[in-house]
């Protein structure tokens, strides 16, 4: 799998995970994503913003335009309760999936 290609659900999960640590803006999220995964999960920044706004429409994150350095405004995203709930559900699903995958792969060895 090309490392820049991420399943949409996975991207949502990653965004929610990063926002669970601290509120952040879009660029910060994309930067954190690269740092945490050690550049292994470099997402296309182009798909990050639609994903963020979709999450907001679903009520899983909320955002606010706040003043930042050099007279600019940045949109800061914060995870909501619904977002946390989804994160924990999807994490479980993901872990179950990863576990099954590992079992199958190890069986095949």
């Amino acid at each position: 799998m090309n490392k820049t290609q991420l399943l949409q659900g996975t991207l949502d999960l990653l965004i929610l995970r990063i926002l669970e640590l601290a509120p952040n803006h879009g660029w910060g999220i994309s930067n954190r994503l690269q740092q945490i995964s050690k550049d292994g999960l470099k997402t296309s920044q182009g798909s990050l913003y639609p994903a963020l706004h979709r999450l907001e429409m679903r009520g899983e994150v909320k955002s606010e335009m706040t003043a930042s350095e050099n007279n600019r405004r940045a949109r800061i995203y914060t995870i909501t309760r619904a977002g946390r709930k989804r994160l924990s559900q999807e994490t479980e699903t993901w872990e179950a999936f990863a576990l099954s995958m590992r079992r199958v792969l190890e069986e095949g060895q």
Binding site: G26, W27, H53, R73, R75
Partner: peptide
Amino acid sequence: AEIEEELRDHLEREMEA
């Protein structure tokens, strides 16, 4: 307008980096 502002902010930060 806000989406555009957000994206421009992103570009500034990226260019800065």
